[in-house]
Every structure is written in structure tokens, then in C-alpha cells.
Design a protein around this nucleic acid. Sequence first.
DNA 1: AGGTTTTCCGGAATCGTTTACAGAAATAAA
DNA 2: TTTATTTCTGTAAACGATTCCGGAAAACCT
Lengths: 342, 342
Amino acid sequence: MKPISLKQLAQALNLSSATVSRALNDSHEVSAETKGRVLALARELNYEPHPFASSLRRQKSKTIGVILPEVANNFFSLAIDGIEEIARLNNYHVLVYLTHDDHSREVDIVQHLAGGRADGILLSVASETNQFTHLDLLAERGIPTVFFDRVRAGSAAATVTTDDHRGGYKATQHLLQAGCRHIAYLLVSNNLSIGQKRMQGYQHAMQEAGLEYSPHLVVQGQRDKAENVALIRQLLEEHPEVDGIFASVESLALSAYEACHEVGRRIPEDVKVVGFSNMAAAALLEPGLTTITQPAYEMGREAAKILFKAITKNKPVLPAQSLELESELVVRRSTEAARLKP
Amino acid sequence: MKPISLKQLAQALNLSSATVSRALNDSHEVSAETKGRVLALARELNYEPHPFASSLRRQKSKTIGVILPEVANNFFSLAIDGIEEIARLNNYHVLVYLTHDDHSREVDIVQHLAGGRADGILLSVASETNQFTHLDLLAERGIPTVFFDRVRAGSAAATVTTDDHRGGYKATQHLLQAGCRHIAYLLVSNNLSIGQKRMQGYQHAMQEAGLEYSPHLVVQGQRDKAENVALIRQLLEEHPEVDGIFASVESLALSAYEACHEVGRRIPEDVKVVGFSNMAAAALLEPGLTTITQPAYEMGREAAKILFKAITKNKPVLPAQSLELESELVVRRSTEAARLKP
DNA sequence: AGGTTTTCCGGAATCGTTTACAGAAATAAA
DNA sequence: TTTATTTCTGTAAACGATTCCGGAAAACCT
């Protein structure tokens, strides 16, 4: 019933548990012969060390914690995929926690993890989070932390992000080139790093084109999807001049599509849409959605790699290790310029 | 630097660690007064019990393992969401592992988890898996296991599934009603429970309509997406009579769309498509995809609930606890009958 | 008062490993 | 041959909690 313990193994071999432990850890101070005997029986009896006993003694959990706002989201799903891959290569385990963008939940989780359950943490902050005192605990405890995508503003830790400013700029510029003049910006939260940076890129492009930035064309989404559709719909009705929409996150791009349908605005003829997105089906939408696509899988991998470098070297992660990966503009029909009559 | 231990806490209070432990666990054999003192200082010093020490002694990991084929998939993402929710309510932690449909990986993971790292397991088997000896270990060790969606055929454990047979039947019947006569069936793996059951539903409906089942119209997908598109394309070219496609998993529905585009078959005029899917954007595809939608979030929740019932009662999960939830046919334009000329 | 039961607390063993320390045997050096 | 070194193994003390016992003090009975 219960798995076999090292002590039992030792008894069966007429050895002390110390020797057996050393043999299993391939220590140099045990003869080749006994090593062989131990390994043989261990394999035969299907022995494996109890993870927590080992963790307790070594003060290593062999586990990392991943804290995400949500997982029903193509970006985070792909990121988890990358993270799990690197963790597996390092023989580590992955605990996943979801904040659902709730700050107090984020604090709870971090506090729990700081208790020794994880050797390191990958974090994409909740949109509600604007206080970061809970992260000080991690620093005190010396638990390396890497932020990814949604990062802490002036953090002392490493971050893995995409070129959000540039992405916002590229998206907006693309809309401008397609002929848009009144471009709305949709974001999910004002105190989120990504929302701000992407917006700066948006403003930058607008300014460069000699267009003035209008706060009325900026819509901040809520957590509820139906509400977002209503908000965008309201925007379109109150501002019929809007001829372009830049959604800084995937879900808002979809809401924009729905809102346009509802109020009868055709994409791309009346309104052109571009959005940050990692949706596999972006090309199959009606019409195909022009996207700024982040290398989500690679971001997960890279963030995990940085974390493991810190864990294995037992050093804190330095901000200097931060990485900024490039996002890609994928042009599809949602931003197609009006067709010339043949 | 290091978190405070129970022993230190006891010392500071001039109490034995036994008493402090009991106080923290709200034992009846410690006076209200000392209980108060302990709790107060514990809170002040931000004490929390070391998870592994506690786990080691109590032989409870407070952790469940979730083994999935992949996470970049709307169904599994939603399921994780539900699982995490229930785990949190039970003060449990969630380890996530991905098999990428690799059997040997599944075996590895299960063996690791059987070592005591998890108190229970939620499993959606890899498509490669057709041997289940690795699961016997879990039974021996008394680790409760609940399968969900992709289940073991004649398993002795509980399962949470959707009415796959009925779903397949409904999908096919819907295509038939829309006028299809040559319906192709796409599945991901022949030894997967879901592929088989959904196919039975398909065959059932075909038979009921007096149509004969043709193995040539059944396509088994590979792991690679591009390959799937090619396979479906080949099907469409070799069998121009195909006027309906039923994709038993989401990714194949998308591949079907692409294949149709490539060979110039219009949906729904030439070919109608229906697929199992949990894509949020199904309605926004070109054309909107008719789906059989599974209650993925609820399935995750229910599977987790069953698991926790077993964990807290320390009983194995019984097959009798199995649950079959209803899937829903959501009709969209991809199966719209040919319009009558006005 | 004497006996019995509660109430409350501490000592020490325990969970299953790892590792500092020590010591015996074997080998090398003198 | 004696001494120094290497090679191997074992004893015991950790890691940080929980819990079985046992016992002192207080409270409850006659």
C-alpha cells in the first residue's frame, strides 16, 4: 500500500540508510559494488525518495509557482506550455494559481508561496494590483521572482515582456496607413504595465501623424465580457467618426467585433480593427483579424530559464537579466484598405 | 531571511512547541488564553507552518496533480480554471503537467506523483495511451484518481465526461437535417474514448438516416496541424461528394476550415461543418462555426469535487460517482441550409 | 478530605530523507 | 613494520512540524 522507504530498502540490503542515500545520490564515497546492489534493488522495488522528506532536509522544494490572472486566454495558455517545458527539463514541478485579476488573491498566493512551497515564482500581475508590498516578502526570503508580460512598474526583479511600446506603435501606424484618422484605444486596466506602454506607442504614432490624442476615444474594459461589448458599442454610437480600433488585449478585440456587428458597422469598410492576440483562429474570423502577436510560448520559456538560472545559482534575479522579445504584426483582412473599384 | 519556525515561536512565548502546534491547530486541549497569545504572536510575526514539514508528518501533501495532454486548447484551459477554483476552496494546491499526448511522459508523471507528491490526481489521458498499467500503481497506493473527458475505457475509477455518444449523434443529425448526405468524420486518435464514442454517435445517426457508414470518410488527425490540413484537403479532393464534416475536436474543425479555403469549397454552401469546440470566438469565424460545446468549466469543477470527496473521506473514488454532463449544440452559419432564392 | 475526572501542558518519538562526524578496514608511504 | 592516507560505512543529528504519552494542577464529585 504505502511506498517503500529508504529505511526499508537499507534494511533489506543490510546497509545503513546513510549509505543507501549516498548510493542513490551517486556519491563518490560509496563503493561501486554496493552502489550497484542498491540501485538494483531500488529499481526492482520501484523505490523513489519521498519528495517532502527530501525537500525538508535539503530546503529545496523542486517546485516553482506560476501566478496568472487567468488561463482561459491564449496568451497565458501558451506561456504555461513554455514554462512547463523548461520546468520539466530541470526536473521541477509547476504549481499554477489564478488570481482572476483579484489583488487580494494575489497577495494570499504570494504569501503562501513565500512559506517555502516554491523555490521561485513566475508572476503576471493582476490588473487590480497597484501596491506591491506583498512582493517585498519574496525579496526578503530570497525567493527569485520573474515577472512576465504584466510586470511591476519600477521593479527590482527581472522581467520578460514584449516590445509593448513598439507593438502599440506598429498597430496604430498600420491603422493610420490603412487610412484611419479616428482611432479608438481599448485597454483592460490603467495601472497595468502593458496597457500603459501600448498606449504610449499608440499616442506616439498618433502624434507623429499629426493627430491629436483624444481621451474620449480611450475605453477601459471591465472584467465582464458583455459589459465590454456594451462599452464599445456606446463608443461607436457616441463617436460615429471612429474608423479604427486598436484593442490592447485579445478579449477586447473580440468584443469589438461583436459591438461592430451589433451596431452594423462593417469591418474593415467602416471600421478597421487590430488587436494584440494569440488566437490560433485569428485568420478564420470574419473578417480575419489583424493582430500583434506575442511570442507567448517563448516568453514562458525565457522567463522560466531566467528563473532557473537564479534558482540553481542561488542568486537573486537581477533586473539586468530582463528580456524584451519582439511582437509581430500579422496583417489580415480586418485592416484592409477600401478596395478600388475595378 | 528565513521564515520563522514553530520552535522559535514557542521559545518566544515560553511554551513548548507541542502546545504552540496545538494552539495553531485550534486543539481543545489548550486554554483559550494561551491560544490567544499564540495566535497573536503568530500573526504579528507572520508565521506560517512550513508546508513540507507538516506534509511529511501528516502524510498529506495538500496538493493535487492535474495531467493534461495540452493546455493551448480552450477546453482544457476552462477545465483548469474550474479545477483551480475548487482546489482553492479546499485549500489545496494544483500541480499541472502536460503530456503532449506522449504516453511515456504520462507514465513518468504518474509514477512521480504516486511517490506522495499529490493526494489525488485528475487525468485526461494522452491519445497515445492504450496501456494503463501505470495507473495500477495509483490504485495500489490508494491515491484517488478521477478521469475527465478523455477517460480510460473500462476503468475502475470515476470519470467525468460529456454525453459523447449523444453529442456525436446530435452533430451528425444536425448535418443530416441541413441536407448533408456524405458526412466525413475527423478524430484525433482511435484509441481515445472520446473519439470512439463520438464516432458511435455519428454512425448511429448515419444508420438511422439509412446512410451507410464509409470508412473512407473517416480521417484520423496527427499531432501536427499542417499535416491535418493536408489530410483533410486530400479527403476533399478524393471525395468531392463530401458535403458535411464533423470534427470531433476543436483543432480539427479549424483545420477543416483551412482545408476548405484552400481547395475553394465554400462553407456552408458546398460543405457544412460542425465541431466539438469551446472557442470563445466560434461565432466570429467566417462563417460562424456550429459547435457542440462542452461545459468545460463545470467539468473541471465536478471532477475536482469528486476527487476532494474521496480525499477528505479517505476513500477511493468509485466508478458509481461518475458524472456525465450534457453538451450543447450551438447552431451557427457553418451549417446553414442553402438559402431559397427570394 | 479523599478520590475521580478534566484541563492543560511538556517531553520525546515520529514522518523519510540528508549529512556532519567518527571510525574501521584497506591501502599507500615511510 | 609502523605510520599516514584513502576508502568505505555507520551513528546520530538535523529539517520543522505533529502527536502519543504521561503528569501536574485544577475542578468536580461524594
